[in-house]
Design a protein around this nucleic acid. Structure first.
Lengths: 234, 234
DNA sequence: CAGCCCCTCACTATTTCTGGGGAGTTGAAA
DNA sequence: TTTCAACTCCCCAGAAATAGTGAGGGGCTG
């Protein structure tokens, strides 16, 4: 059943079709909602989901991503997580949770964080209405399928997005990488130059050229970009 | 077969046993070598692998991680990758590749990058000797198993490591997060303060307290730490 | 209700970083 | 073989960040 779904998925050729597939997936997985949401390193977003458009709009308007424990948790961990295990004690969060349930997203949820090339981040979520026990046995039984599906959906989404690719992949020279790595580790220029056994002037040249390549406005920005694009090995 | 392996894995209770399991996994998967290698945000490493100790030592001595296309690629992408698809044209890289093959790691390889909570990064690799065609059909057939196994091995490794946990999880206040986010986006303090509609003095207080919480030596360091621990949503 | 964390604002001296120049060597690719 | 990218070094003035203190109000929690 899932196998045939994945086979079908492989043949998808547009983002629109992918959206349809998410709807089909909801039925295949027998849940209330399925959400795939991706953000790349330039901040562009793509989502394929079955939530009501109203709730999505409201979520965006209120910038709930900054509050949503699911998003917060998935940014920090990589394991799939059951919504029950998150911290909902904060007042604003409880408020948000209430609104979410009122919008019909269901009282249970399970999310799989995904990270792709160049700092891409995605979230694959299923949600529904069930008792804690029902949901626990459902997720336990389907973890593997959810892991696989999330992976393949993300792969397909990236593949399709790459067709319309504007994301330029920068590459840093070894010394530029070294320089930024030192700075990311907290050294100041003098210390970094010392560690790399070069003059501070030279180090500065690397930082500047890295900043230029990364179109960064300052050193901190350059380090941030390099990190979020996976260019530095700390 | 793999199912029973995963069940066994779930019962593993020490990192030593996990090492034995990797050896068992090599036979289960019918490959030459299996490597699981994890680095957490503080730079501590753990590996369970079947490579010869000599090669491992040599690899570490030469700091080959900075050269190894597998590591480089897996830092930047998240999809599993076949070693053939990497760029081995650089002279140093070809040299490294030659040494690797001489050390018996095999002429084919397939690696799965994994990212865990708080900036943990891990790599799950299988390698062996085969023709391109043989290897292609092997990997195509086993991608799913490899994905699942890599996930479960990582989960188990993290679970065991957490027992010996020294990694303190820091959490930033909303304003601290805002401040660091602005800086990571390339704003200077004046611009950031303006965006957040607070005085620059106030902003500075946030940056300092964030720096303190993250035990960072300067702003760039704080941003780097926050980013690599998934604390910032850019 | 006391303690703690969060949010907000202020001053000053010192250190560090940035942006604008310029210049020579080496090694690899075209 | 030329050309280009990477690596190395240098000066200086102005801009920006940091260290060291200080203070008051608001809100949640025990």
């Amino acid at each position: 059943m899932l196998d045939s779904y994945i086979e079908q998925l492989q043949r998808v050729e547009t983002l629109g079709e992918l959206n349809d597939h998410v709807v089909a997936l909801r039925d295949t997985l027998d849940v209330e909602h399925v959400v795939y949401h991706s953000v790349n390193s330039t901040g562009e977003q793509y989502a394929a989901l079955t939530y009501s458009p109203e709730w999505v709009q409201h979520y965006l308007d209120e910038d709930y991503a900054r509050l949503d424990p699911v998003v917060q948790a998935c940014y920090q961990r990589f394991h799939p997580i059951d919504w029950k295990r998150l911290d909902w004690t904060n007042k604003n969060v409880r408020n948000f949770h209430g609104e979410a349930i009122d919008s019909g997203i269901g009282n249970q949820g399970f999310s799989v964080p995904i990270r792709g090339p160049s700092g891409q981040f995605a979230l694959f979520t299923v949600s529904g209405n069930a008792s804690d026990d029902q949901w626990a046995s459902y997720t336990e039984e389907h973890v593997r399928n959810l892991l696989l599906v999330s992976h393949f959906v993300n792969q397909k989404a990236l593949e399709l997005e790459r067709g319309t690719d504007k994301v330029k992949v920068v590459s840093l020279s070894p010394r530029e990488t070294d320089a930024l790595t030192m700075l990311a580790m907290g050294f100041n220029r003098a210390q970094a130059a010392d560690s790399l056994s070069i003059s501070e002037h030279t180090l500065r040249v690397y930082i500047e050229s890295a900043r230029f390549k990364l179109t960064a406005m300052n050193t901190t920005h350059a380090v941030a970009r390099a990190l979020s694009q996976g260019l530095l090995i700390i």
